[in-house]
Amino acid sequence: ELSWTAEAEKMLGKVPFFVRKKVRKNTDNYAREIGEPVVTADVFRKAKEHLG
């Protein structure tokens, strides 16, 4: 699991709890794919757009 900024964690907190774990995993995987060592708010937004 990658490191997350406080802002990205806050955004994740707005995701319904029953899918939060999956969203975190998918976002981590997306960040790795694009070469990001940390999940930022920008990476979170891009993952959301990319993953739907």
Rank of each mutant, 00 (worst) to 15 (best):
I34R: 09
G13A: 15
F18T: 09
S3I: 14
E36S: 11
T27K: 02
D42I: 07
W4C: 01
G35I: 02
N26D: 15
L2N: 04
L12C: 02
Y30P: 00
E7M: 06
H50M: 11
V19D: 12
A41L: 09
K21A: 15
W4E: 00
D42Y: 07
W4M: 00
V15P: 02
A31R: 02
P37Y: 12
K14Y: 08
A8S: 04
E49P: 06
A47V: 05
A47W: 12
F17A: 11
R45S: 07
E49S: 10
L12I: 05
R45E: 08
T27M: 08
V23G: 01
L2F: 05
L12Y: 03
E49Q: 12
A47S: 06
V43F: 05
V38S: 05
N29C: 09
N26M: 15
R24P: 00
M11H: 04
A31I: 02
A47E: 02
T5Y: 02
K46Q: 11
V39P: 00
E49L: 13
V23R: 04
T5W: 02
W4Y: 01
N26S: 11
F17L: 12
A31H: 00
N29T: 11
K14F: 08
E33M: 15
K22F: 14
Y30I: 03
F18C: 14
E7P: 05
D42V: 07
K46Y: 05
A8R: 00
T5G: 03
K10M: 13
K14N: 10
N26C: 13
H50E: 07
R20K: 05
V43Y: 02
V19H: 14
A6P: 12
E33W: 13
S3C: 11
G13V: 08
R32W: 06
V38T: 07
K25Q: 14
T40G: 03
E7F: 04
L2V: 10
P37L: 14
E1P: 15
E1H: 11
K21E: 15
R45D: 05
V39D: 00
G35H: 06
P37T: 14
V38N: 05
E1Q: 13
E36F: 07
F44L: 05
K22S: 11
L51C: 10
F44M: 04
R32K: 09
K46D: 07
L2C: 05
H50D: 06
H50W: 13
D28R: 03
K10P: 00
N26H: 15
K25C: 08
E1G: 13
A41F: 05
D42Q: 08
R24L: 04
P37S: 14
V15A: 05
S3T: 14
K14L: 12
L51R: 14
E49G: 09
T27D: 00
P37R: 11
E9K: 12
A41D: 05
A31P: 00
M11T: 03
S3L: 15
K46P: 01
A47F: 13
V19E: 13
V15W: 08
E36M: 08
A41G: 09
S3F: 14
R20L: 04
M11L: 15
K46R: 12
G52E: 13
I34W: 09
E33P: 01
V15D: 03
F17V: 09
D28S: 07
F18I: 10
V15S: 04
T27V: 15
G52S: 13
E1I: 11
L12G: 01
E1F: 12
E9R: 11
E33L: 13
K46C: 07
K14P: 03
V23S: 03
L12K: 01
R24F: 03
V15R: 03
D42P: 05
E33V: 09
R32F: 06
A31N: 00
K46A: 12
R45Y: 06
